[in-house]
Nucleic acid binder design. Structure first.
Lengths: 300, 300
DNA sequence: GTCTCGCATGAAGTATATTAATCGATGGAT
DNA sequence: ATCCATCGATTAATATACTTCATGCGAGAC
């Protein structure tokens, strides 16, 4: 009852990656014979065949596929743990892996990261945007250490703190009839082309908080990956978009765009930072939260 | 760069749990000396002290706390993985990909799958119907694990077992002249519209075993995808079809259809289950065959 | 002070992992 | 069809790593 070792997972991953025992052996700085032996013993101990031997190639069985999934999940965590221990050894602080679930958060995040990096020279920051099981899953799975999201989830081992309030607005180009209007009603978008980031509709505030409740849909819906292009499209009259007010106002110098309040009361949003509560006292992590919160004032 | 082994995490967790190296050694069935050696080497390799030695007790350093957290997170996952592999080994778990080569088999299969899923909760069942190189090829190519077919092929690595006998009959609608006849002769179909599944004629029993030997062809031939629509067409007098007797009798409640024997002696058919003979002892696979065979009695 | 408990250490033995050398099988090239 | 290169399996030899044994040292208990 303690058969599976790290080296086994390492072998399984290498065989999958490099396609053969021989190639894997090369990469692992071992001989083909060594792997063959190890594999055979492992299969014996587990009582499971991991690969089907077909001619001169190996194909993972169901158990093999499962083991591969385990390897791909656990090995990165072990690697990360060692890296972190290396940082301990060198007296450094560590790496802060930040995950983001909202597109425009990126612009905001950049403003925080720059001063943070100078204040904490020993901390490396990494930003990730894609998660297999969602941002929360990435936090739990130790893929990231901090999550930037507009949708906090108060749950068992996680802590979320609001760090930034902003207003979500409609962005219109020059000469647009809504430009300068005190606010826009949902029905007024029924004939518009709406440009959004390419994500599910239920993750877009302009739908969930504005259009959908009113039962309105825009005439066309156009997904665009990047904020810059999105603003260019709006500036050239190809459609309207929805972004944070501060972002629009900041970019108004570069693009001919203007913000219009969504509905009579506007759409208020918050950005939250989430982290594992066991790490809440890590000073370099706390510091990031503090800096994010402090930065709020500078913009409003 | 692959220092941390599972055993190390195991030690770290045990020391934390049982309070001392000596106690941990006992639980791990090792000597105290062995642990001491291992620990020292680990600390050297990582370049980190894991425990502060105070008097005769050990207190985890910051790195130690971190490692403990890693151990408590990863070890249960490894344990769980081994447990799951044990299920694979004992044939309790797996994925059963069932391929089907005959259309009406589907109705029959559904009756087997339902109880099977409750009896084998750890087995995932998947049903496929299209194969690039035929059902046999799919078995050999590991696209599927079990084939449901009326045409067994006794060959090298495959095993086929008959699990269900049935009679193929003609289906006629209400008011059809053949209704109630003791049997139908091929020539009597020369003026009929024959409705079949959209497959090659040589895979349709009514052709291979009834019409073709007599040199007869129906007036029209109409391919229909689904059994339900086929029965509706027959019930509304648009043509006749050919299906298993048990299926017709079962559906007689829903549709106004009746079965007529094909020819003086009827057309007898069997459904076979085929699988790779190397997997014949897999418990969950055997169980499926048994359940399929047992189900036979309930219907006839 | 002495006794006990717990960890550390060095040398020795043993188990384990790795290698070298070789074989058989397979699939592609000629 | 034949040949050749490649891959995995196997066996025996070897190297490595681990464990044990015997012992030492220090700290707290009595």
């Amino acid at each position: 009852m303690a058969i599976l070792e790290r080296s086994h997972l390492e072998i399984i991953r290498a065989v999958d990656r490099y396609g053969s025992l021989t190639a894997a052996a090369e990469k692992l700085h071992l001989t083909q014979s060594a792997l063959s032996h190890t594999v055979r013993k492992l299969e014996d101990l587990l009582g499971v065949t991991i690969w089907r031997r077909e001619g001169r190639s190996l194909h993972p069985t169901q158990a093999g596929e499962y083991l591969l999934a385990v390897a791909n999940r656990l090995l990165p965590q072990l690697d990360h743990a060692e890296e972190r221990l290396g940082q301990f050894a060198r007296g450094e602080r560590g790496g802060l892996r930040i995950g983001m679930e909202c597109h425009p958060c990126y612009q905001w995040l950049l403003k925080i990261v720059a001063p943070y990096l100078t204040a904490w020279p020993a901390v490396d920051v990494d930003v990730k945007q894609k998660f297999q099981f969602g941002g929360i899953g990435a936090l739990f799975g130790y893929e990231i250490d901090m999550l930037v999201t507009p949708d906090p989830l108060y749950k068992n081992g996680l802590t979320f703190e609001p760090v930034f309030d902003y207003e979500q607005v409609l962005v219109v180009g020059p000469g647009h009839p809504l430009r300068g209007a005190p606010y826009v009603k949902p029905a007024q978008l029924a004939n518009e082309t709406l440009i959004t980031y390419p994500v599910a509709l239920d993750r877009l505030d302009i739908y969930t908080q504005f259009l959908t409740p009113a039962g309105i849909a825009p005439k066309r819906h156009k997904p665009i990956e990047t904020t810059d292009i999105m603003l260019q499209m709006v500036a050239s009259g190809r459609g309207v978009a929805s972004l944070p007010r501060w972002l629009v106002e900041e970019q108004a110098e570069r693009f001919e765009v203007a913000a219009v309040q969504l509905g009579r009361h506007g759409v208020a949003k918050q950005i939250f930072l989430g982290y594992r509560e066991t790490e809440g006292q890590l000073d370099y992590l706390r510091a990031f939260v503090e800096m994010a919160r402090a930065n709020q004032g500078s913009r409003r």
